[in-house]
Simulated scan of single mutants.
Amino acid sequence: MTAETAIYETRLARDEADLLAAQRLRYSVFVEELGGDGPMVDHAARLERDEFDPVYDHLILVDRTRPQGDHVVGAYRLLPAERAEAFGRYYCDAEYDLAPLRASGRKLLELGRSCVHPEHRGGAAMLMLWNGLADYVLAREIEVLFGVASFHGIDPEPLRQPLAWLHHHHLAPPEMRPRARAEHFQPMDLVPEAELDRRAAMAGMPNLIKAYLRLGGFVGEGAYIDAPFNTTDVLLLMDTKAMSEKHRSFYTRRVEPREAGGGGQG
């Protein structure tokens, strides 16, 4: 453990104070930074929240040096299939037809609201969140992870290259491929495969999406235009049992070997 990681603790939210701190971080990132909004967003208290928060597990990254209330510097929402069934739906149901995933018979986990405080990006914070997610997934024998990830903005023109790259190179297998709801469907094949520019596609790709692709992730059919959140969403999914050993070691590795002089995050 080094000074960089000693300040952090990764765990599930334990109480209302943890949840409020996560919602405050989400407000900073999704509302103030990215321009999002929603019917349950509390602008007066600066909390980004919705009706799903009570049924999710909230994986949080705590900075021990920050005061209580602002102690959460990274967050992920996690919804196991059995809890989604009891609640009646997943968050992604509003944007994608999840019938292929439900019909697969696999053990599912929905991910959402992934964010890291700006001061903690680029270091060990995201890797530690991934470590916490890996522990959660392995302990529960989750087989398929899925969730929406967002491009900033709803104009497809600047997103042509990254969306087309995802469509031509990373579509999920047909038997597991959710499709964006028709009323907000945005085609992703905006550039013919022969005209793709990999450098431009990667430059326009959010880091979270690139991380899933490195792990062997796939995307659903079509993007979803989420006007209230000012985002263009894609459905990411990852079959944990289909990961190569290389991908699995990246996903489950600990922070300590990197700190001892091993390779970087990649």
Rank of each mutant, 00 (worst) to 15 (best):
M1N: 14
T2E: 13
E4Q: 15
A6W: 10
E9A: 14
E9D: 14
E9W: 07
T10F: 07
T10V: 15
L12R: 12
A13Y: 05
R14I: 08
D15E: 11
E16K: 11
A17P: 00
A17S: 14
L19S: 04
L19E: 10
A21F: 09
A22I: 04
R26P: 02
S28D: 14
F30H: 03
E32T: 12
L34T: 00
G35R: 06
A44S: 13
L47C: 07
P54N: 15
P54M: 14
P54A: 15
L59D: 04
I60T: 06
L61I: 10
R66S: 08
R66G: 09
Q68G: 05
Q68N: 11
L79K: 02
A81S: 11
E85W: 07
A86P: 02
A86H: 13
E95D: 09
L98K: 03
R102M: 12
R102F: 13
R102C: 15
A103L: 11
A103N: 13
S104W: 02
S104G: 12
E110H: 10
G112T: 15
R113L: 06
P118Y: 06
E119C: 06
H120A: 08
G122Q: 04
A125G: 03
A125E: 03
M128Q: 09
G132D: 02
L133S: 03
A134F: 07
Y136D: 06
V137P: 02
L138W: 12
E141M: 01
I142A: 08
I142D: 05
E143I: 05
L145G: 03
V148P: 04
A149V: 05
I154P: 01
D155A: 12
E157L: 13
Q161L: 13
Q161K: 11
A164F: 01
H168T: 05
H168G: 05
H169A: 15
H170T: 15
A172E: 04
P173Q: 13
M176S: 13
R177W: 05
P178H: 07
R179N: 05
R181S: 11
Q186N: 03
P187F: 01
M188H: 00
L190E: 01
P192K: 09
D197N: 15
G204S: 03
P206V: 07
N207K: 13
N207P: 06
A211W: 01
Y212W: 12
G216Y: 13
V219M: 05
V219R: 02
V219D: 02
I225Q: 00
A227R: 03
F229W: 00
N230P: 01
D233P: 00
M238T: 06
D239S: 10
H247G: 09
R248I: 07
T252V: 14
T252G: 10
R254T: 12
R254N: 10
V255M: 10
E259W: 03
G264T: 05
Q265V: 10
Q265I: 03
